[in-house]
Design a protein around this nucleic acid. Structure first.
Length: 300
DNA sequence: CACTTGACCTGTCCGC
DNA sequence: TGCGGACAGGTCAAGT
């Protein structure tokens, strides 16, 4: 489930790998994954040069030199993997097996560049998509237009984030964190991780949260996203970066997928419950519904 | 209007 | 060993 750290890791990889490449050819298996007018693809994608990469929340951009961009959402199982001859024959890193085996049956879009290198879009469950937009159109994509602030941007203040969360007064705090219009880029993993770190039960209604709790939550969101970025994101099952390599944040996770294991703060057993329709991992001692529990610094 | 639930998909795991 | 069903979760549409 690529969230902000995973998408940003892919973006950084692409930025090293595909800038200045010229698109020569595009193929796809399902129009739902690549829902583009063939004429627009022919006119504005084929022959275009990659100018820059970008990201907004969990949405990835490949900006072309003609004021068009590929807009990409990996959703749950999407991968963007770049392969050239040096990766195929010279790599030597642990992801070689994946690199060697592409394309495979999960490859739904293949972009071939003029130098023969390729960008594969793989998506086991086919929830994600790649779409060509003119740059002005991007702003009118509802998801983009309504998206909340970037949590890691220096321009985003704790006060702004807290105020946006407060507007969802009757919602549960986890549902609020997952709402991309409140804050961009958080998904199930980092919602659970940051709520544990802040000592807040995911079912707490927003109006019950004290300012100090929201302030701590904001701080922990920033820290957990930064840590994950540092670890190259989380690979649960599918996620890999643009070179086909896995991320290692899961090894550092405090609650996510740790049900049955001891809480790293109080040794109580981590349990899995269902909140906002999602599997949710908590320490019921550190994250009480009452919200009166004082959270000490974890060494997590 | 505010908020919650179901649909979209397919691979994996569990119980029988 | 095979099979049905639950489960995984980001976003949008539909429902309460």
């Amino acid at each position: 489930m690529p969230e902000l750290p995973e998408v940003e890791t892919v973006r950084r990889g692409l930025d090293d790998l595909i800038i200045d490449k010229v698109v020569a050819q595009v193929s796809f298996t399902h129009a739902k994954q690549f829902p583009n007018d063939p004429q627009a693809v022919k006119n504005f994608l084929i022959g275009a040069r990659v100018r820059a990469t970008g990201r907004r929340g969990k949405v990835l951009f490949i900006h072309l030199d003609n004021d068009y961009s590929l807009v990409i959402h990996l959703k749950m199982t999407g991968q963007l993997v770049y392969i050239d001859d040096s990766a195929r024959w010279g790599g030597g890193h642990p992801s070689d097996s994946l690199v060697q085996s592409l394309p495979d049956k999960s490859t739904h879009v293949t972009i071939t560049f003029r130098d023969g290198s390729r960008l594969y879009y793989n998506d086991q469950r086919r929830f994600g998509w790649i779409k060509l937009y003119s740059d002005p159109e991007i702003q009118s994509i509802p998801l983009i237009a309504g998206m909340g602030p970037e949590p890691l941007s220096k321009l985003t203040t704790a006060e702004d984030v807290m105020q946006r969360i407060r507007r969802k007064k009757n919602s549960g705090i986890k549902a609020t964190l997952l709402d991309q219009s409140v804050i961009a880029g958080i998904g199930n993993i980092y919602a659970d991780e940051s709520l544990w770190a802040a000592g807040i039960h995911p079912e707490r209604r927003v109006f019950t949260l004290k300012d100090a709790e929201l302030k701590t939550l904001h701080k922990e969101i920033v820290q957990v996203l930064r840590l994950s970025l540092d670890k190259g994101g989380s690979t649960d099952k599918n996620y890999v970066n643009a070179r086909g390599q896995r991320g290692s944040y899961i090894d550092f996770a405090r609650v996510f997928r740790r049900e049955g294991a001891p809480c790293k703060r109080c040794k109580n057993e981590i349990i899995k419950i269902r909140v906002a329709g999602r599997g949710t991992h908590i320490c019921a001692v550190c994250q009480p519904m009452s919200g009166t529990k004082r959270v000490r610094k974890g060494r997590g």
